[in-house]
């Protein structure tokens, strides 16, 4: 019993370490003034109002949403086709390659990728550098694991091979099979993957700051500039991004409960 309460205490302390900075930031975003005091003084919505009234931030938000949505769409397509192929072909080298692709964003740091993209898409007379399209390409690669992983876990969970055998023996055409069996059964993984992909693309800074230009700045890029405005404003701008991440995360966790799939299988990592 003593042991158990010790574990619990350690767990709760860790919980505080994780959420204290977030809570502080949220408090700060509603504070009128925060300088030299433990907590801010006064209560205001002013910072949020400011955030949504400045064209630069609103435009960046729209840009972020646009890139994130397209990233999700493209990755959903890429992931479904490749996960299906890797699973069904069941070749050792393919599985190894798949494992490696899942780890790509860590194996090839964003700064290396950004450097490569800036050089590879900058031809004299025609340059993609500074466009949102190039960022889209970068984000598709960067967020790929977040779609691939839950989908593959999903394939394994439903034991796809026999389902396909069953459907074929019942006379299903490939299209019927994909529409009625594959996609509906991959839905939990697909939704979790989409939410995570969306969140990761939305918050991505390291690639965005290298690849985008003044007309294609995303929210995290302009957020960096907000740090120098005022504490309250910076807190509000950051809180917005933090909230989106947390909502996405709990969306994924909620999904796994709804679909009764095992949480650790469809959740994120790496």
């Amino acid at each position: 019993m003593i042991k158990k309460s010790l574990f619990l205490t350690v767990g709760i302390m860790y919980l505080f370490f994780i959420i204290a900075p977030i809570i502080l930031m949220m408090i700060g975003s509603f504070g009128e003034k925060w300088f030299g005091t433990l907590l801010p003084t006064g209560f205001t919505f002013e910072w949020y109002a400011k955030l949504f009234s400045r064209l630069m931030y609103v435009r960046a938000m729209k840009m972020s949403l646009q890139v994130a949505s397209l990233t999700v769409l493209i990755n959903a397509f890429l992931a479904i086709s490749s996960v299906y192929a890797v699973y069904v072909l069941n070749k050792d080298w393919l599985t190894r390659a798949f494992d490696f692709i899942i780890l790509l964003p860590i194996a090839v740091p964003p700064v290396v990728m950004g450097l490569g993209l800036v050089q590879a898409f900058n031809w004299p007379g025609f340059s993609l550098v500074g466009t949102w399209q190039l960022l889209l390409g970068a984000h598709v690669i960067f967020t790929m694991p977040f779609m691939l992983k839950p989908l593959m876990a999903n394939m394994e969970l439903i034991g796809w091979n026999t389902l396909e055998d069953a459907a074929l023996s019942l006379g299903a055409s490939p299209l019927f099979l994909a529409r009625k069996v594959l996609v509906p059964n991959l839905l939990p993984g697909l939704i979790s993957g989409s939410i995570m992909t969306f969140a990761m693309s939305l918050g991505e800074f390291q690639l965005a700051v290298m690849v985008t230009g003044s007309t294609s700045q995303t929210y995290p890029v302009v957020l960096y500039q907000a740090f120098y405005v005022s504490t309250g404003f910076a807190c509000a701008a950051t809180t917005l991004l933090v909230l989106m991440s947390i909502v996405s995360l709990f969306g994924v966790i909620g999904m796994s409960f709804i679909f009764r799939t095992r949480i650790d299988k469809v959740s994120l990592s790496a």
Partner: peptide, 11 residues
């Protein structure tokens, strides 16, 4: 525990 994993380094 998963919350920090979704955060941008900036945050």
């Amino acid at each position: 525990n998963a919350i920090p994993l979704t955060f941008s380094g900036l945050v």
